[in-house]
Design a protein around this nucleic acid. Structure first.
Lengths: 134, 134
DNA sequence: TTATTGATTGACGTTTACGTAAACGTAATA
DNA sequence: TATTACGTTTACGTAAACGTCAATCAATAA
C-alpha cells in the first residue's frame, strides 16, 4: 500500500556496499547478462528483483559456479515457457546440478571431518605441553 | 611385506588418467609447491603420498580453494613442529576454514532446496500438460 | 637401426573475473 | 560559481589455472 516500501531502489554503490562487492563487479554482472537494472537518465537504478538475483548470483559464486554458468541457470529458469520440451529440459538441468551439489555436500562433510581430526590432535598436543610445563 | 605393493609408483600420465587431469596440471601443481614427485633420471615418479595429496588437492579445488590456499593448508599441516605457537596457529587456521565450510554447507543446502522447489513445480506443470492431452 | 611412444623443459596463448585509470557528465553543497 | 561526490563509458592491466605448441631426449618395439 506504500510505494516507497514496495519499490525501494538502490544506486550502484548502495547495492555494492550492501553486498560487499564493488560497483565494477555489478557492471560486470550486468554485462554478463545476469543483472538488468533500469536507468534513470544515465544512472543505473536497482530494484528488489536485482537484489534477489544478486543474492543468488553470489551464492552461486560461493559454490564455485562461473558467471557463464550462473547466467545459464537464470536463463533456463526465466525463459521457461511452460511448454513441455522446456520443462523437460529444465528438469534435466536441475538433475545435473543436484548431482554436483550432492558431491559438494560430501566434499564439505569430508573436509569438516578432517578439520575435526586435526583439531583434536592439536588440542591434545597442547594439553600435553601444558601438563609438561607445570 | 611386499615392496611392490607398498611402493607402487606412477608415471605422470598414469596418475593424470587416474584422476582425470592433464599432465600439464600435475606439473603446475608441482610448480605450485603442492606435489613433489621423486625423479628417476629425468622422469617424474609419483608415490602413494602424491596420490593422497592430489586427492586432497582436487577436493580443495572442488570446494573452490585456489592453489595458493591449498598449498598454504598443506604447509601449515606439514610444517607442524608440535611447538606451542605452531599448534595455536594451526588451530586458528582450522577455525577459519571451518567457518567457511559451514557457510558452504548452508549454501549447498539452500541450493538443493531451491532445486527441489523448481523441480516439483516443473513436474506438476508436466502432469497438467499430460492430463490436458488426454 | 629406425620409428614410435612417452617424457622433459620452455614459452607463449587463453579465459575468467575483476582492478584501475582516464576522461567526462550531473547534481548538490559551500 | 567552484568544488565535491557520485556516476558513466572505454580501455588497458592482471592473476590464476591451465592449454597448446615446439624442440629435445630416452627407451622400446618392429
Amino acid at each position: 500500500m506504500n510505494k516507497e516500501v514496495n519499490f525501494k531502489t538502490y544506486t550502484i554503490s548502495e547495492l555494492a556496499k550492501a553486498f560487499d562487492v564493488t560497483p565494477r563487479a555489478l557492471r560486470l554482472y550486468e554485462e554478463s547478462g545476469i543483472l538488468g537494472p533500469k536507468r534513470e537518465g544515465n544512472r543505473r537504478i536497482y530494484f528488489e528483483r536485482d537484489r534477489v538475483r544478486l543474492r543468488l548470483l553470489l551464492r552461486g559464486k560461493r559454490l564455485g559456479y562461473s558467471l557463464a554458468e550462473i547466467k545459464e541457470l537464470f536463463d533456463v529458469y526465466d525463459s521457461n515457457s511452460g511448454e513441455e520440451g522446456q520443462l523437460r529440459l529444465l528438469l534435466e538441468n536441475m538433475e545435473d546440478k543436484k548431482k554436483k551439489l550432492e558431491i559438494q555436500k560430501v566434499d564439505v562433510e569430508a573436509a569438516l571431518q578432517e578439520i575435526e581430526r586435526i583439531t583434536k590432535k592439536a588440542r591434545k598436543a597442547l594439553r600435553e605441553i601444558a601438563a609438561a610445563k607445570k
